[in-house]
């Protein structure tokens, strides 16, 4: 059994959330660069140039990529041979978030649903844990803004609707969002499981690196088919019209009940902030 003090979780989370909010992943920057060639609209190409300049400015000036530094979405995979000591894991996660949002000058965007009173430290984190084999702890952070999260939805489709039903649902959400979720977007689709697992799968789908396809060739083709259909909508970068509305589409799928076809769509803005660390 490996002994691990929760203090390591705190400091790792603080660093990850600050890093994620300031440094856009290289894969996203490359996607912007490639999109300048793919985009037909001159206004759209200008948007991509602004996004590239923004990524450079954020890194050089250590200013967040976007002022909406999000809710603190945190995934932790804990090896079953690890013993955490020194305090509760949830408290450690929230402390890491608290420190990151204070020390990193990140905006606190977490409030009571009705009074709208801000919690003032961006806690509680949105925490998902999983017990896995091994003696390591893997932490992935995905600070997620409100504009794109607002265009997520779970629908319990009828099994006969099949792939066509899934594609129609995704396009419906993309059209409904239009410019609001800050296109070019990335779309996470969770299919199967039940009501709540489909939603979680859709978020996990967003964590798949850009241009990495589902291992099932049929699902991989389906991802590309949906991507092409989104890019035919004409919405374009920032919704100003164009041919690059989405950078990628990822599907996570698992078996479901014989009576159901649960589908969740989670939309990510172009400021796709994600970082991970292994302890």
């Amino acid at each position: 059994m490996r002994e691990l003090h929760v203090g390591e979780i705190i400091s790792t989370l603080e660093n990850l959330f600050i890093d994620a909010n300031i440094n856009l992943p290289g894969s996203v920057i490359r996607a912007f660069e490639e999109s300048i060639d793919k985009e037909d609209s001159p206004v759209g190409r200008e948007v991509f140039r602004e996004l590239l300049r923004n990524a450079v400015t954020a890194k050089e000036e250590r200013i967040p990529i976007c002022q909406d530094t999000g809710l603190a979405v945190t995934f932790i995979e804990i090896g079953q041979d690890v013993h955490l000591y020194g305090g509760a894991l949830e408290d450690a996660v929230n402390e890491g978030v608290r420190r990151a949002y204070k020390n990193g000058y990140l905006r606190k965007s977490c409030c009571d649903p009705f009074s709208r009173r801000n919690t003032n430290d961006n806690t509680p984190a949105i925490l998902h844990t999983r017990i896995v084999p091994g003696n390591q702890v893997k932490i992935t952070v995905l600070p997620k803004g409100g504009g794109s999260e607002n265009y997520g939805e779970v629908r319990m489709l009828v099994p006969s609707q099949g792939k066509e039903g899934v594609q129609a649902f995704v396009l419906d959400m993309v059209m409904k969002g239009g410019p609001n979720p800050c296109p070019p977007i990335i779309v996470g689709i969770g299919i199967g499981g039940n009501f709540e697992t489909s939603a979680l799968l859709s978020k996990e789908a967003l964590m798949v690196p850009l241009n990495i396809r589902n291992e099932d060739p049929a699902i991989a083709d389906f991802e590309l088919e949906i991507l092409r259909s989104i890019n035919r909508t004409g919405i374009g970068p920032q919704g100003y019209g164009g041919t690059v509305t989405a950078l990628d589409v990822h599907i996570k799928i698992m078996p479901c009940h014989i009576a159901s076809l649960p589908v969740a769509v989670n939309i990510q803005c172009h400021a796709h902030r994600i970082k991970e660390a292994l302890i």
Binding site: V47, E50, L51, R53, N54, A55, T57, A58, E61, I63, P64, I65, C66, Q67, D68, G145, G147, P179, C182, Q238, C269, H270, A271
Partner: peptide, 8 residues
């Protein structure tokens, strides 16, 4: 203004 270009 370009959404998500807050640093710029």
């Amino acid at each position: 203004a370009t959404g998500g270009a807050g640093a710029l």
